[in-house]
Design a protein around this nucleic acid. Structure first.
Lengths: 239, 239
DNA sequence: GCGCCGCGGATTGTTGACAATAGTACGAGC
DNA sequence: GCTCGTACTATTGTCAACAATCCGCGGCGC
C-alpha cells in the first residue's frame, strides 16, 4: 500500500534532489574578487596600477568593507601587492616571474596529467576533445583563442579530480594571462597552438605517460621562450 | 676631489642599505590570519568547529573588520569553509583530502627538488643539513618533531628559489598538519623519519634526480598509508 | 500524533564615520 | 643651490551601529 496508494502522491527521492543544484549563495566579497580578478587578467588594470578603495567600491556599487575582504583574497592569491597606508597595486611580473609561473604550472599540470592517465582516460580525452573543439572555433579571434587556451588547461587539471591541483592551476593561469596581457604577447599561430594541445590529448587518450610529460614540458618551455625572447618590448623588471 | 675631500664625509651606498631589512609593516589582517592559521594547524580549533566573529575578535583584541579580512584570506587558502549567514567553519578533511594533499605535495616538492638539483646543490644540501639537525634535536618531543618535519619540507621548497612553489607548499603543509592533528596520527619512530629525510638530502647533494624523486614519492606514499591505514579511528568523511 | 506556521535570539553582512599614517608641496635656513 | 622642516591633502586602517538572514522553539490546526 505504500507505493500505489494514491494517484498523485509520490515521495521526493534523492534522484529528484540531485537534479537541483544548490542555489547561488556566494558572498559579496567572492563576487567582487571575481570581477577584479577578471579585470586584472584581461589587462584592464595593467600591472603597477593602484587600486583606490573608494573608487573601486563606488564603481562596483558596494561598500568598502566587502571590497577590502575581496582584496585580501586577491592578495592571498598573489595577484595584488599591499603596502600599508599606501594602497593596493597590481603586481608587476618580470622575467623571473614568468619563468616561475611556468615552472609551477609544469609541476601542477604534470601531476594532473599523471592522475588522468591513472583514471578514466577515455572520459578525460572526451573532455579535452570538447575543449579542443572550442579552441578550433575560436581560432580566428586572438582573445577568444586565449580564453579557449586558458579553458583547455583548466579542464586538463580539473579532469584530474584533484581540487587542490585545480585551484592552484586556476591561480597560475590567471597569472599567465597577466603576463600575456602585460607583455603584449601575441599567441603563436592558431594552427600550431591547437596542434600542440591535440597532441597532449592524444597522449592522454593513449595512456602514454612519457609522451604526455614530454609534450607538456615542451609546451611550457616554448611559451616561456616566446614570452621572453622576442626582444625586451618591456624592460621586464629583473626582480 | 670627490672621494677624498673631507675626512668624515661619505656617501651612502647600496651596500649600506642592503644591510637594513625593511621594517616590519604587516597589516593587522595578516597577523590575525597567521594566528588563526597556527591555531587551526595545531588542532586548537578542531575541524568542523564554528568560528564566531565577535568571539574571535574579542579574543584577539581587534574589531570585526580586520578579522573578517583575515578570514577571507584563510577561506582563499582552503582552510576555512564559509556558509553565508551561517558562519565560518574549520574545514573537515577526509580520506580523499589526505590523498589529495599528498598528491599535490608530491607534485610541488618534486618540482622543487629538480630545481634544487639544477641550482647550487651544495648550498641546498647545507640548508637541508641544518634542518635535519634541528629534527635530530627534536627527536624526543613528538610535537617539536612535527614542527621540525614541517620546517624541513618548507626549507626544501624554499631553497628551490621559487616563490610560487614555496607558497603553495606552505599552504599544503598546514593542511598536512591539520590531518595529523585531526586523525590523532602519531609520527613514525623519530629515527626512521630522520633517516628518510637524510636520504633526501643525500640525493640532493649527490645530484641524483632519480633517487630524489623515488625517495620523495615513497616518503609521501608512506605518509598517506600511515594516516589512513591504522583502522578508521575517525569515519573519515568520504567527501 | 503529525506537520505547518510564526516568533525570538543570535549571528552574519553591510554601512558610514572617525582616526592614523604616508605622500606632497612649499618655505626657511645654511 | 641644496637640504631640512612643516603644514596640508588624500588614502588607508579601524571601529561601532544598523539591517538582513537563519536556526530553534512553542503554539496551532488538521
Amino acid at each position: 500500500m505504500d507505493e500505489s496508494a494514491e494517484a498523485g502522491r509520490r515521495q521526493l527521492n534523492t534522484a529528484d534532489l540531485s537534479a537541483l543544484e544548490p542555489v547561488e549563495r556566494r558572498s559579496t566579497a567572492a563576487i567582487v574578487a571575481d570581477r577584479i580578478r577578471t579585470a586584472i587578467m584581461r589587462g584592464t588594470f595593467p600591472p603597477g596600477t593602484q587600486l583606490g578603495e573608494v573608487e573601486l567600491a563606488a564603481a562596483l556599487g558596494v561598500s568598502r568593507g566587502p571590497l577590502r575582504e575581496a582584496m585580501q583574497r586577491l592578495v592571498a592569491e598573489g595577484l595584488l601587492r599591499s603596502e600599508r597606508h599606501r594602497g593596493l597595486f597590481v603586481r608587476e611580473l618580470g622575467a623571473a616571474d614568468v619563468r616561475d609561473v611556468y615552472t609551477a604550472r609544469t609541476a601542477i599540470e604534470r601531476a594532473a596529467g599523471l592522475l588522468l592517465l591513472a583514471g578514466d582516460r577515455a572520459a578525460a580525452a572526451d573532455r579535452l576533445t570538447a575543449a579542443l573543439s572550442r579552441m578550433e572555433a575560436a581560432a580566428a579571434d586572438p582573445v577568444a583563442l586565449a580564453d579557449a587556451d586558458h579553458a583547455f588547461h583548466a579542464e586538463f587539471v580539473a579532469a584530474s579530480g584533484s581540487p587542490r591541483l585545480r585551484r592552484m592551476a586556476e591561480t597560475l593561469l590567471v597569472e599567465t594571462r597577466m603576463c600575456l596581457a602585460a607583455l603584449q604577447e601575441t599567441l603563436p599561430p592558431a594552427a600550431a597552438l591547437i596542434a600542440e594541445h591535440r597532441e597532449l590529448r592524444d597522449a592522454v587518450r593513449d595512456g602514454d605517460a612519457e609522451r604526455m610529460t614530454a609534450v607538456l614540458e615542451a609546451h611550457m618551455a616554448d611559451a616561456v621562450g616566446r614570452i621572453l625572447a622576442p626582444g625586451p618590448q618591456v624592460p621586464a623588471v629583473p626582480a
